[in-house]
Nucleic acid binder design. Sequence first.
DNA 1: GTCTAATACCACCGTATGGTTGTATCAATG
DNA 2: CATTGATACAACCATACGGTGGTATTAGAC
Lengths: 110, 110
Amino acid sequence: MVVSMQIVLDHDRIFGALADATRRDIVRRAIDGQAGVVELAERYPMSFAAVQKHVAILERAGLVSKHRIGRRKVVHTNLEGLRVARRLLDQYEELWRERVERMTQLVRES
Amino acid sequence: MVVSMQIVLDHDRIFGALADATRRDIVRRAIDGQAGVVELAERYPMSFAAVQKHVAILERAGLVSKHRIGRRKVVHTNLEGLRVARRLLDQYEELWRERVERMTQLVRES
DNA sequence: GTCTAATACCACCGTATGGTTGTATCAATG
DNA sequence: CATTGATACAACCATACGGTGGTATTAGAC
């Protein structure tokens, strides 16, 4: 029985996944979509298993995905995951802009 | 002796602070910059002290700051903190764009 | 000055997280 | 099909995190 893992793209997981320097570096490297987990692991001062766990956290957050190429699995960054995070920040900035506008309006009316 | 607390604006703290629904909600509410910690705390199903800790985490991350108004302290969101996070995501998207461009170029040359 | 509302801080507790080592699976290769 | 390179997963450990209640500090109100 195959139960496909659920990728939720919720903000908790996405921002949590990005709150670690190793994982952010993996995201950056995986944009090119050429690195397997072994190649990634070689670059960080920690065990292979630790890097694997970081990739798993990124995968659960929907920031990267893996697909087989031969006997390796290649990690590549998922643009949509990054955009979910960015959209939230954009919303905050939009609220900020609206607030500034309201305040400017108030000053103008007084 | 007064030792001012250091606000670092590093990505670990910023994304970590945003990885919690309560804290994101505080950031959103504090954009208007009118809420004291008591008013904030009333909105969440947790103790006053818990909300205070959330605000402290946001403050250490540079996402909000507090200043006295009368006997209260008002929490307001710091736009620059949000922008630090957004800039990193923008960089990733830019890397993505460059990669797509390189690939398109390769296809064209073949 | 005394009282009190608003905030800050401390100690504690359960659970999640980041790391480790060891073992199991899985697919190409000989 | 046995081997082996690449990945997955489980058990374990130390520390960080999110919550609690209780106590201290601070600044207006009286």
